[in-house]
Design a protein around this nucleic acid. Sequence first.
DNA 1: CGAAATCTTGAGTATAATCAAAAACGGTGG
DNA 2: CCACCGTTTTTGATTATACTCAAGATTTCG
Lengths: 242, 242
Amino acid sequence: MHDHPLIRKLESQGLRLSDEEQAALLGMPMQVESIRADQDIVREGDRPSRSCLILEGYAAMYKVTPSGKRQIVAFHLPGDIPDLQSAHLEVLDTSLGTLTPAKVAFIRHEVINEVCERHYRIARALWRQTLIDAAIFREWVVNVGRREALNALAHVMCEFVVKMRAVGLAEDHQCDLPMTQAELGDALGISTVHVNRTLMELRAAGLIKLAGAKLTVLDWDRLKELGEFDPTYLHLNKQAVA
Amino acid sequence: MHDHPLIRKLESQGLRLSDEEQAALLGMPMQVESIRADQDIVREGDRPSRSCLILEGYAAMYKVTPSGKRQIVAFHLPGDIPDLQSAHLEVLDTSLGTLTPAKVAFIRHEVINEVCERHYRIARALWRQTLIDAAIFREWVVNVGRREALNALAHVMCEFVVKMRAVGLAEDHQCDLPMTQAELGDALGISTVHVNRTLMELRAAGLIKLAGAKLTVLDWDRLKELGEFDPTYLHLNKQAVA
DNA sequence: CGAAATCTTGAGTATAATCAAAAACGGTGG
DNA sequence: CCACCGTTTTTGATTATACTCAAGATTTCG
Protein backbone atom coordinates (compact mmCIF):
# COMPACT_ATOMS: atom_id res chain seq x y z
CA MET A 1 0.00 0.00 0.00
CA HIS A 2 1.34 3.38 -1.05
CA ASP A 3 2.24 5.76 1.74
CA HIS A 4 0.53 8.87 0.41
CA PRO A 5 -3.11 9.12 1.49
CA LEU A 6 -4.32 10.39 -1.89
CA ILE A 7 -2.70 7.61 -3.86
CA ARG A 8 -3.92 5.11 -1.28
CA LYS A 9 -7.44 6.40 -1.74
CA LEU A 10 -7.28 6.19 -5.52
CA GLU A 11 -5.82 2.72 -5.35
CA SER A 12 -8.59 1.56 -3.05
CA GLN A 13 -10.88 2.27 -5.96
CA GLY A 14 -8.87 0.10 -8.26
CA LEU A 15 -7.09 2.91 -10.02
CA ARG A 16 -3.52 2.40 -11.11
CA LEU A 17 -1.61 5.50 -12.14
CA SER A 18 1.66 5.46 -14.04
CA ASP A 19 4.76 6.81 -12.32
CA GLU A 20 4.50 9.91 -14.45
CA GLU A 21 0.89 10.47 -13.48
CA GLN A 22 1.66 9.91 -9.82
CA ALA A 23 4.49 12.38 -10.08
CA ALA A 24 2.20 14.91 -11.74
CA LEU A 25 -0.35 14.52 -8.96
CA LEU A 26 2.00 14.59 -6.02
CA GLY A 27 4.14 17.23 -7.68
CA MET A 28 1.34 19.78 -7.51
CA PRO A 29 2.39 22.63 -5.24
CA MET A 30 0.49 22.27 -1.97
CA GLN A 31 0.35 24.37 1.10
CA VAL A 32 0.13 22.20 4.18
CA GLU A 33 -1.62 23.51 7.27
CA SER A 34 -2.51 22.15 10.66
CA ILE A 35 -6.01 22.88 11.82
CA ARG A 36 -7.52 22.45 15.26
CA ALA A 37 -10.59 20.37 15.97
CA ASP A 38 -14.04 21.84 15.31
CA GLN A 39 -12.77 24.54 12.97
CA ASP A 40 -14.28 25.42 9.65
CA ILE A 41 -11.92 24.90 6.74
CA VAL A 42 -14.23 26.56 4.24
CA ARG A 43 -17.71 27.89 4.66
CA GLU A 44 -20.92 28.00 2.61
CA GLY A 45 -20.86 31.12 0.46
CA ASP A 46 -17.07 31.23 0.15
CA ARG A 47 -15.47 31.49 -3.27
CA PRO A 48 -12.23 29.68 -2.61
CA SER A 49 -9.37 29.58 -5.10
CA ARG A 50 -8.07 26.27 -3.81
CA SER A 51 -9.26 22.88 -2.66
CA CYS A 52 -8.05 20.89 0.28
CA LEU A 53 -6.68 17.39 0.53
CA ILE A 54 -6.97 15.83 3.96
CA LEU A 55 -3.65 14.34 5.03
CA GLU A 56 -4.46 13.52 8.64
CA GLY A 57 -7.57 13.77 10.79
CA TYR A 58 -11.26 13.85 10.03
CA ALA A 59 -13.72 16.36 8.66
CA ALA A 60 -17.42 16.74 7.92
CA MET A 61 -19.36 18.54 5.22
CA TYR A 62 -22.47 20.17 6.53
CA LYS A 63 -25.14 22.75 5.99
CA VAL A 64 -27.00 24.83 8.53
CA THR A 65 -30.60 25.72 7.81
CA PRO A 66 -31.96 29.22 8.42
CA SER A 67 -33.78 27.78 11.42
CA GLY A 68 -30.42 26.77 12.85
CA LYS A 69 -30.53 23.04 12.37
CA ARG A 70 -27.36 21.38 11.16
CA GLN A 71 -27.20 18.51 8.71
CA ILE A 72 -23.97 16.69 8.05
CA VAL A 73 -23.91 15.31 4.52
CA ALA A 74 -20.58 13.49 4.55
CA PHE A 75 -17.70 12.44 6.73
CA HIS A 76 -14.24 12.75 5.25
CA LEU A 77 -11.00 11.02 6.05
CA PRO A 78 -7.37 11.15 4.97
CA GLY A 79 -6.97 10.97 1.20
CA ASP A 80 -10.25 12.76 0.54
CA ILE A 81 -10.52 16.08 -1.29
CA PRO A 82 -13.87 17.08 0.14
CA ASP A 83 -14.22 20.37 -1.71
CA LEU A 84 -12.81 19.36 -5.06
CA GLN A 85 -16.11 20.58 -6.48
CA SER A 86 -15.04 24.15 -5.85
CA ALA A 87 -12.54 23.81 -8.69
CA HIS A 88 -15.50 24.00 -11.08
CA LEU A 89 -18.26 25.70 -9.08
CA GLU A 90 -17.71 29.31 -8.14
CA VAL A 91 -19.63 29.45 -4.88
CA LEU A 92 -19.51 26.88 -2.10
CA ASP A 93 -22.93 25.60 -1.17
CA THR A 94 -21.71 23.61 1.82
CA SER A 95 -19.36 24.12 4.74
CA LEU A 96 -16.47 21.90 5.67
CA GLY A 97 -15.24 21.62 9.23
CA THR A 98 -12.77 19.47 11.12
CA LEU A 99 -13.98 16.85 13.56
CA THR A 100 -10.51 16.35 15.01
CA PRO A 101 -7.19 18.14 14.74
CA ALA A 102 -6.19 17.75 11.11
CA LYS A 103 -3.44 18.32 8.62
CA VAL A 104 -4.64 19.44 5.22
CA ALA A 105 -2.91 20.35 1.97
CA PHE A 106 -4.37 23.20 -0.06
CA ILE A 107 -4.02 23.03 -3.82
CA ARG A 108 -4.81 25.95 -6.09
CA HIS A 109 -7.58 25.39 -8.61
CA GLU A 110 -5.41 26.55 -11.49
CA VAL A 111 -2.92 23.89 -10.62
CA ILE A 112 -5.57 21.18 -10.50
CA ASN A 113 -7.02 22.30 -13.81
CA GLU A 114 -3.66 22.43 -15.47
CA VAL A 115 -2.81 18.90 -14.39
CA CYS A 116 -6.22 17.68 -15.50
CA GLU A 117 -5.92 19.31 -18.89
CA ARG A 118 -2.48 17.81 -19.41
CA HIS A 119 -3.36 14.33 -18.11
CA TYR A 120 -6.85 13.28 -19.07
CA ARG A 121 -6.47 10.14 -16.98
CA ILE A 122 -5.97 12.27 -13.90
CA ALA A 123 -8.98 14.37 -14.82
CA ARG A 124 -10.97 11.16 -15.08
CA ALA A 125 -9.67 9.94 -11.75
CA LEU A 126 -10.63 13.15 -9.99
CA TRP A 127 -13.96 13.37 -11.80
CA ARG A 128 -14.58 9.82 -10.69
CA GLN A 129 -13.84 10.85 -7.10
CA THR A 130 -16.53 13.47 -7.24
CA LEU A 131 -18.92 10.96 -8.76
CA ILE A 132 -18.31 8.58 -5.90
CA ASP A 133 -18.95 11.40 -3.46
CA ALA A 134 -22.25 11.96 -5.26
CA ALA A 135 -23.06 8.25 -4.96
CA ILE A 136 -22.46 8.52 -1.23
CA PHE A 137 -24.80 11.49 -1.01
CA ARG A 138 -27.49 9.49 -2.75
CA GLU A 139 -27.18 6.66 -0.28
CA TRP A 140 -27.13 9.23 2.52
CA VAL A 141 -30.50 10.52 1.33
CA VAL A 142 -31.88 7.01 1.53
CA ASN A 143 -30.42 6.55 4.97
CA VAL A 144 -31.90 9.75 6.29
CA GLY A 145 -35.18 9.49 4.42
CA ARG A 146 -36.14 5.87 4.60
CA ARG A 147 -34.43 4.17 7.48
CA GLU A 148 -35.37 4.33 11.12
CA ALA A 149 -32.78 5.48 13.59
CA LEU A 150 -31.50 2.03 14.51
CA ASN A 151 -30.97 0.93 10.93
CA ALA A 152 -29.62 4.30 9.83
CA LEU A 153 -27.10 4.33 12.65
CA ALA A 154 -25.96 0.83 11.79
CA HIS A 155 -25.60 1.95 8.20
CA VAL A 156 -23.34 4.94 8.85
CA MET A 157 -21.17 2.78 11.07
CA CYS A 158 -20.80 0.25 8.27
CA GLU A 159 -20.00 2.93 5.75
CA PHE A 160 -17.46 4.55 7.99
CA VAL A 161 -15.69 1.33 8.88
CA VAL A 162 -15.46 0.24 5.25
CA LYS A 163 -14.08 3.58 4.15
CA MET A 164 -11.55 3.45 6.96
CA ARG A 165 -10.51 -0.07 6.02
CA ALA A 166 -10.14 0.95 2.38
CA VAL A 167 -7.41 3.43 3.22
CA GLY A 168 -5.77 1.27 5.84
CA LEU A 169 -7.04 3.05 8.93
CA ALA A 170 -8.95 0.14 10.41
CA GLU A 171 -7.66 -3.19 11.52
CA ASP A 172 -10.18 -5.95 11.42
CA HIS A 173 -13.36 -4.48 12.74
CA GLN A 174 -11.90 -1.85 14.94
CA CYS A 175 -11.24 1.79 14.21
CA ASP A 176 -11.54 5.32 15.47
CA LEU A 177 -14.98 6.85 15.41
CA PRO A 178 -14.01 10.50 15.57
CA MET A 179 -17.41 12.09 16.00
CA THR A 180 -19.63 12.88 18.97
CA GLN A 181 -23.17 11.65 19.39
CA ALA A 182 -24.39 15.13 18.53
CA GLU A 183 -22.50 14.92 15.25
CA LEU A 184 -23.93 11.50 14.52
CA GLY A 185 -27.35 12.98 15.12
CA ASP A 186 -26.63 15.77 12.66
CA ALA A 187 -25.58 13.15 10.14
CA LEU A 188 -28.75 11.11 10.56
CA GLY A 189 -31.15 13.97 10.98
CA ILE A 190 -32.12 12.88 14.49
CA SER A 191 -31.66 14.36 17.95
CA THR A 192 -28.67 13.72 20.17
CA VAL A 193 -30.82 12.08 22.78
CA HIS A 194 -32.17 9.68 20.23
CA VAL A 195 -28.68 8.83 19.01
CA ASN A 196 -27.77 7.96 22.54
CA ARG A 197 -30.71 5.65 23.02
CA THR A 198 -30.14 4.05 19.67
CA LEU A 199 -26.46 3.47 20.37
CA MET A 200 -27.49 1.74 23.57
CA GLU A 201 -29.66 -0.55 21.53
CA LEU A 202 -26.78 -1.43 19.21
CA ARG A 203 -24.63 -2.16 22.22
CA ALA A 204 -27.31 -4.17 23.97
CA ALA A 205 -27.77 -6.23 20.81
CA GLY A 206 -24.08 -7.08 20.96
CA LEU A 207 -23.35 -5.55 17.57
CA ILE A 208 -20.80 -2.96 18.56
CA LYS A 209 -18.59 -1.82 21.37
CA LEU A 210 -18.03 1.89 21.57
CA ALA A 211 -15.86 3.47 24.19
CA GLY A 212 -14.36 6.87 23.85
CA ALA A 213 -13.60 7.34 20.20
CA LYS A 214 -12.90 3.65 19.62
CA LEU A 215 -15.39 1.55 17.76
CA THR A 216 -15.31 -2.22 17.65
CA VAL A 217 -17.73 -4.06 15.46
CA LEU A 218 -18.59 -7.25 17.31
CA ASP A 219 -20.90 -8.77 14.74
CA TRP A 220 -20.22 -7.45 11.26
CA ASP A 221 -22.78 -9.60 9.50
CA ARG A 222 -25.64 -8.63 11.71
CA LEU A 223 -24.62 -4.96 11.70
CA LYS A 224 -24.54 -4.98 7.91
CA GLU A 225 -27.89 -6.63 7.76
CA LEU A 226 -29.44 -4.27 10.25
CA GLY A 227 -28.04 -1.29 8.37
CA GLU A 228 -29.07 -2.76 5.01
CA PHE A 229 -25.51 -2.06 4.02
CA ASP A 230 -24.39 -2.96 0.51
CA PRO A 231 -21.03 -1.33 -0.27
CA THR A 232 -21.59 -1.18 -4.03
CA TYR A 233 -22.23 2.54 -3.91
CA LEU A 234 -18.75 3.18 -2.54
CA HIS A 235 -17.29 1.86 -5.78
CA LEU A 236 -14.28 0.33 -4.11
CA ASN A 237 -12.33 -2.54 -5.58
CA LYS A 238 -13.15 -5.96 -4.19
CA GLN A 239 -9.97 -6.21 -2.21
CA ALA A 240 -10.69 -2.98 -0.37
CA VAL A 241 -14.19 -4.10 0.53
CA ALA A 242 -13.25 -7.57 1.73
CA MET B 1 -32.67 30.58 -25.98
CA HIS B 2 -31.19 27.69 -27.93
CA ASP B 3 -33.61 25.06 -29.10
CA HIS B 4 -31.71 21.97 -27.98
CA PRO B 5 -32.48 20.99 -24.39
CA LEU B 6 -28.88 20.13 -23.55
CA ILE B 7 -27.49 23.42 -24.77
CA ARG B 8 -30.32 25.23 -23.05
CA LYS B 9 -29.43 23.51 -19.82
CA LEU B 10 -25.75 24.34 -20.10
CA GLU B 11 -26.55 27.93 -20.96
CA SER B 12 -28.81 28.25 -17.94
CA GLN B 13 -25.68 27.67 -15.92
CA GLY B 14 -23.89 30.49 -17.64
CA LEU B 15 -21.83 28.30 -19.92
CA ARG B 16 -21.08 29.54 -23.41
CA LEU B 17 -19.71 26.99 -25.84
CA SER B 18 -18.08 27.85 -29.14
CA ASP B 19 -19.77 26.75 -32.34
CA GLU B 20 -17.18 24.04 -32.69
CA GLU B 21 -17.80 22.78 -29.18
CA GLN B 22 -21.54 22.83 -29.70
CA ALA B 23 -21.10 20.90 -32.89
CA ALA B 24 -18.91 18.36 -31.13
CA LEU B 25 -21.54 17.88 -28.43
CA LEU B 26 -24.59 17.70 -30.63
CA GLY B 27 -22.69 15.74 -33.25
CA MET B 28 -22.27 12.79 -30.91
CA PRO B 29 -24.13 9.81 -32.30
CA MET B 30 -27.27 9.33 -30.25
CA GLN B 31 -29.98 6.75 -30.32
CA VAL B 32 -33.33 8.31 -29.60
CA GLU B 33 -36.04 6.24 -27.97
CA SER B 34 -39.54 6.87 -26.73
CA ILE B 35 -40.34 5.43 -23.34
CA ARG B 36 -43.69 5.05 -21.64
CA ALA B 37 -44.51 6.49 -18.25
CA ASP B 38 -43.37 4.64 -15.12
CA GLN B 39 -40.74 2.58 -16.93
CA ASP B 40 -37.21 2.05 -15.70
CA ILE B 41 -34.60 3.40 -18.09
CA VAL B 42 -31.73 1.85 -16.17
CA ARG B 43 -31.69 -0.07 -12.95
CA GLU B 44 -29.44 -0.34 -9.89
CA GLY B 45 -26.84 -3.01 -10.55
CA ASP B 46 -26.76 -2.48 -14.30
CA ARG B 47 -23.46 -1.93 -16.08
CA PRO B 48 -24.63 0.24 -18.95
CA SER B 49 -22.38 1.19 -21.86
CA ARG B 50 -24.24 4.40 -22.55
CA SER B 51 -25.82 7.33 -20.76
CA CYS B 52 -29.12 8.98 -21.51
CA LEU B 53 -30.01 12.54 -22.26
CA ILE B 54 -33.62 13.47 -21.59
CA LEU B 55 -35.13 15.24 -24.57
CA GLU B 56 -38.75 15.31 -23.47
CA GLY B 57 -40.61 14.23 -20.36
CA TYR B 58 -39.61 13.70 -16.77
CA ALA B 59 -37.70 11.10 -14.81
CA ALA B 60 -36.66 10.29 -11.26
CA MET B 61 -33.57 8.69 -9.77
CA TYR B 62 -34.40 6.39 -6.91
CA LYS B 63 -33.30 3.55 -4.72
CA VAL B 64 -35.34 0.83 -3.14
CA THR B 65 -34.25 -0.49 0.25
CA PRO B 66 -34.21 -4.19 1.03
CA SER B 67 -37.27 -3.59 3.18
CA GLY B 68 -39.06 -2.33 0.11
CA LYS B 69 -39.17 1.38 0.79
CA ARG B 70 -38.45 3.69 -2.10
CA GLN B 71 -36.47 6.91 -1.89
CA ILE B 72 -36.34 9.29 -4.80
CA VAL B 73 -33.09 11.24 -4.78
CA ALA B 74 -33.62 13.53 -7.77
CA PHE B 75 -36.13 14.63 -10.34
CA HIS B 76 -34.86 15.11 -13.87
CA LEU B 77 -36.14 17.17 -16.74
CA PRO B 78 -35.30 17.77 -20.38
CA GLY B 79 -31.65 18.65 -20.89
CA ASP B 80 -30.48 16.49 -17.99
CA ILE B 81 -28.15 13.54 -18.35
CA PRO B 82 -29.18 11.79 -15.14
CA ASP B 83 -26.82 8.84 -15.41
CA LEU B 84 -23.77 10.60 -16.79
CA GLN B 85 -21.96 9.13 -13.78
CA SER B 86 -22.09 5.73 -15.41
CA ALA B 87 -19.51 6.91 -17.95
CA HIS B 88 -16.94 6.65 -15.16
CA LEU B 89 -18.45 4.24 -12.64
CA GLU B 90 -18.85 0.65 -13.72
CA VAL B 91 -21.90 -0.31 -11.72
CA LEU B 92 -25.05 1.74 -11.31
CA ASP B 93 -25.93 2.30 -7.67
CA THR B 94 -29.27 3.94 -8.43
CA SER B 95 -32.23 3.32 -10.70
CA LEU B 96 -33.70 5.78 -13.14
CA GLY B 97 -37.32 5.66 -14.16
CA THR B 98 -39.70 7.84 -16.15
CA LEU B 99 -42.44 9.80 -14.44
CA THR B 100 -44.19 10.57 -17.70
CA PRO B 101 -43.86 9.38 -21.28
CA ALA B 102 -40.41 10.51 -22.35
CA LYS B 103 -38.06 10.80 -25.27
CA VAL B 104 -34.46 10.09 -24.41
CA ALA B 105 -31.22 10.01 -26.40
CA PHE B 106 -28.69 7.34 -25.53
CA ILE B 107 -25.02 8.20 -26.00
CA ARG B 108 -22.28 5.62 -25.80
CA HIS B 109 -19.70 6.13 -23.09
CA GLU B 110 -16.83 5.80 -25.53
CA VAL B 111 -18.27 8.65 -27.51
CA ILE B 112 -18.61 10.85 -24.45
CA ASN B 113 -15.09 10.07 -23.37
CA GLU B 114 -13.67 10.75 -26.76
CA VAL B 115 -15.33 14.15 -26.98
CA CYS B 116 -14.20 14.98 -23.46
CA GLU B 117 -10.63 14.01 -24.17
CA ARG B 118 -10.58 16.09 -27.33
CA HIS B 119 -12.35 19.12 -25.83
CA TYR B 120 -11.33 19.73 -22.26
CA ARG B 121 -13.89 22.52 -22.03
CA ILE B 122 -16.64 20.01 -22.74
CA ALA B 123 -15.19 17.65 -20.17
CA ARG B 124 -15.30 20.52 -17.69
CA ALA B 125 -18.86 21.36 -18.63
CA LEU B 126 -20.02 17.78 -18.12
CA TRP B 127 -17.96 17.36 -14.97
CA ARG B 128 -19.58 20.53 -13.72
CA GLN B 129 -23.00 19.06 -14.46
CA THR B 130 -22.28 16.10 -12.25
CA LEU B 131 -20.99 18.44 -9.54
CA ILE B 132 -24.24 20.38 -9.63
CA ASP B 133 -26.14 17.12 -9.36
CA ALA B 134 -24.08 16.38 -6.28
CA ALA B 135 -24.88 19.80 -4.86
CA ILE B 136 -28.56 19.04 -5.35
CA PHE B 137 -28.16 15.73 -3.51
CA ARG B 138 -26.57 17.55 -0.60
CA GLU B 139 -29.47 19.94 -0.34
CA TRP B 140 -31.83 16.99 -0.69
CA VAL B 141 -30.22 15.40 2.36
CA VAL B 142 -30.88 18.57 4.32
CA ASN B 143 -34.44 18.68 3.10
CA VAL B 144 -35.14 15.11 4.08
CA GLY B 145 -33.10 15.16 7.27
CA ARG B 146 -33.77 18.51 8.83
CA ARG B 147 -37.01 19.95 7.56
CA GLU B 148 -40.51 19.06 8.60
CA ALA B 149 -42.94 17.94 5.96
CA LEU B 150 -44.47 21.34 5.31
CA ASN B 151 -41.14 23.08 4.81
CA ALA B 152 -39.64 20.21 2.88
CA LEU B 153 -42.57 20.08 0.51
CA ALA B 154 -42.36 23.82 -0.08
CA HIS B 155 -38.67 23.37 -0.76
CA VAL B 156 -39.01 20.70 -3.45
CA MET B 157 -41.67 22.78 -5.14
CA CYS B 158 -39.35 25.77 -5.23
CA GLU B 159 -36.49 23.69 -6.56
CA PHE B 160 -38.62 22.14 -9.23
CA VAL B 161 -40.11 25.41 -10.41
CA VAL B 162 -36.72 27.10 -10.59
CA LYS B 163 -35.23 24.23 -12.56
CA MET B 164 -38.18 24.30 -14.91
CA ARG B 165 -37.86 28.03 -15.40
CA ALA B 166 -34.16 27.71 -16.08
CA VAL B 167 -34.79 25.57 -19.14
CA GLY B 168 -37.82 27.52 -20.30
CA LEU B 169 -40.50 25.07 -19.22
CA ALA B 170 -42.28 27.35 -16.78
CA GLU B 171 -43.97 30.60 -17.48
CA ASP B 172 -44.12 32.94 -14.53
CA HIS B 173 -44.98 30.78 -11.59
CA GLN B 174 -46.85 28.09 -13.37
CA CYS B 175 -45.61 24.76 -14.66
CA ASP B 176 -46.29 21.07 -14.86
CA LEU B 177 -45.75 19.05 -11.72
CA PRO B 178 -45.41 15.62 -13.26
CA MET B 179 -45.35 13.48 -10.16
CA THR B 180 -48.00 11.88 -7.97
CA GLN B 181 -48.34 12.47 -4.26
CA ALA B 182 -46.88 9.04 -3.69
CA GLU B 183 -43.80 10.06 -5.63
CA LEU B 184 -43.52 13.30 -3.70
CA GLY B 185 -43.64 11.22 -0.55
CA ASP B 186 -40.85 9.02 -1.82
CA ALA B 187 -38.84 12.15 -2.53
CA LEU B 188 -39.34 13.57 0.95
CA GLY B 189 -39.16 10.35 2.88
CA ILE B 190 -42.71 10.67 4.15
CA SER B 191 -45.93 8.73 3.60
CA THR B 192 -48.41 9.47 0.84
CA VAL B 193 -51.08 10.30 3.35
CA HIS B 194 -48.86 12.84 4.97
CA VAL B 195 -48.02 14.41 1.62
CA ASN B 196 -51.71 14.84 1.00
CA ARG B 197 -52.33 16.54 4.32
CA THR B 198 -49.33 18.74 3.88
CA LEU B 199 -50.37 19.78 0.37
CA MET B 200 -53.71 20.75 1.80
CA GLU B 201 -51.91 23.00 4.22
CA LEU B 202 -49.97 24.68 1.43
CA ARG B 203 -53.20 25.24 -0.44
CA ALA B 204 -55.05 26.49 2.61
CA ALA B 205 -52.24 28.94 3.26
CA GLY B 206 -52.75 30.30 -0.23
CA LEU B 207 -49.23 29.49 -1.35
CA ILE B 208 -49.97 27.19 -4.26
CA LYS B 209 -52.71 25.97 -6.49
CA LEU B 210 -52.37 22.41 -7.65
CA ALA B 211 -54.86 20.77 -9.95
CA GLY B 212 -54.10 17.74 -12.02
CA ALA B 213 -50.49 18.01 -12.97
CA LYS B 214 -50.51 21.80 -13.10
CA LEU B 215 -48.84 23.76 -10.35
CA THR B 216 -49.33 27.46 -9.84
CA VAL B 217 -47.29 29.25 -7.23
CA LEU B 218 -49.55 31.92 -5.80
CA ASP B 219 -47.09 33.47 -3.37
CA TRP B 220 -43.53 32.86 -4.40
CA ASP B 221 -41.94 34.85 -1.60
CA ARG B 222 -43.77 33.08 1.15
CA LEU B 223 -43.26 29.67 -0.44
CA LYS B 224 -39.53 30.34 -0.69
CA GLU B 225 -39.40 31.45 2.88
CA LEU B 226 -41.39 28.49 4.13
CA GLY B 227 -39.16 26.12 2.18
CA GLU B 228 -36.01 27.95 3.30
CA PHE B 229 -35.17 27.97 -0.37
CA ASP B 230 -31.94 29.61 -1.48
CA PRO B 231 -31.13 28.68 -5.09
CA THR B 232 -27.37 29.07 -4.72
CA TYR B 233 -26.86 25.32 -4.68
CA LEU B 234 -28.37 25.01 -8.16
CA HIS B 235 -25.45 27.05 -9.52
CA LEU B 236 -27.55 28.75 -12.18
CA ASN B 237 -26.69 32.08 -13.69
CA LYS B 238 -28.53 35.07 -12.26
CA GLN B 239 -30.75 35.48 -15.27
CA ALA B 240 -32.02 31.90 -15.01
CA VAL B 241 -32.83 32.31 -11.33
CA ALA B 242 -34.59 35.66 -11.63
C1' DC C 1 -7.63 18.31 39.92
C1' DG C 2 -11.36 21.05 38.08
C1' DA C 3 -14.13 22.93 34.35
C1' DA C 4 -16.32 22.05 30.12
C1' DA C 5 -18.02 18.99 27.07
C1' DT C 6 -20.25 14.81 26.32
C1' DC C 7 -23.09 11.17 27.52
C1' DT C 8 -27.07 9.23 29.92
C1' DT C 9 -31.71 8.88 31.78
C1' DG C 10 -36.62 10.25 32.60
C1' DA C 11 -41.09 12.30 31.48
C1' DG C 12 -44.27 14.44 28.49
C1' DT C 13 -45.31 15.88 23.67
C1' DA C 14 -45.43 16.20 18.61
C1' DT C 15 -44.88 14.84 14.06
C1' DA C 16 -45.68 11.47 11.08
C1' DA C 17 -46.82 6.33 10.17
C1' DT C 18 -50.19 2.86 9.45
C1' DC C 19 -54.49 0.95 8.38
C1' DA C 20 -58.77 1.37 6.24
C1' DA C 21 -62.10 3.11 3.32
C1' DA C 22 -64.47 6.57 0.56
C1' DA C 23 -64.38 10.07 -3.04
C1' DA C 24 -62.59 11.98 -7.17
C1' DC C 25 -60.08 11.73 -11.29
C1' DG C 26 -58.34 10.14 -15.84
C1' DG C 27 -58.18 7.40 -19.50
C1' DT C 28 -60.40 3.76 -22.45
C1' DG C 29 -63.53 1.44 -25.14
C1' DG C 30 -68.16 0.74 -26.51
C1' DC D 1 -70.30 10.97 -25.25
C1' DC D 2 -70.76 8.23 -21.49
C1' DA D 3 -70.02 4.29 -18.51
C1' DC D 4 -66.51 1.83 -16.35
C1' DC D 5 -62.18 0.61 -14.26
C1' DG D 6 -57.88 1.47 -12.17
C1' DT D 7 -55.31 5.00 -10.11
C1' DT D 8 -54.85 8.79 -7.28
C1' DT D 9 -56.47 11.72 -3.84
C1' DT D 10 -58.84 12.54 0.36
C1' DT D 11 -60.48 11.70 5.10
C1' DG D 12 -60.68 9.44 9.73
C1' DA D 13 -58.86 6.92 13.68
C1' DT D 14 -55.14 4.81 16.07
C1' DT D 15 -50.31 4.03 16.93
C1' DA D 16 -45.27 4.67 16.81
C1' DT D 17 -41.09 6.90 16.33
C1' DA D 18 -38.64 10.54 17.59
C1' DC D 19 -38.43 15.39 19.79
C1' DT D 20 -38.02 18.53 23.62
C1' DC D 21 -36.89 19.85 28.04
C1' DA D 22 -34.48 18.96 32.07
C1' DA D 23 -31.22 17.25 35.07
C1' DG D 24 -27.68 14.10 36.62
C1' DA D 25 -23.45 11.18 35.58
C1' DT D 26 -19.27 10.62 33.30
C1' DT D 27 -15.47 11.59 30.49
C1' DT D 28 -11.98 14.50 28.56
C1' DC D 29 -8.62 17.73 28.61
C1' DG D 30 -5.99 21.60 30.10
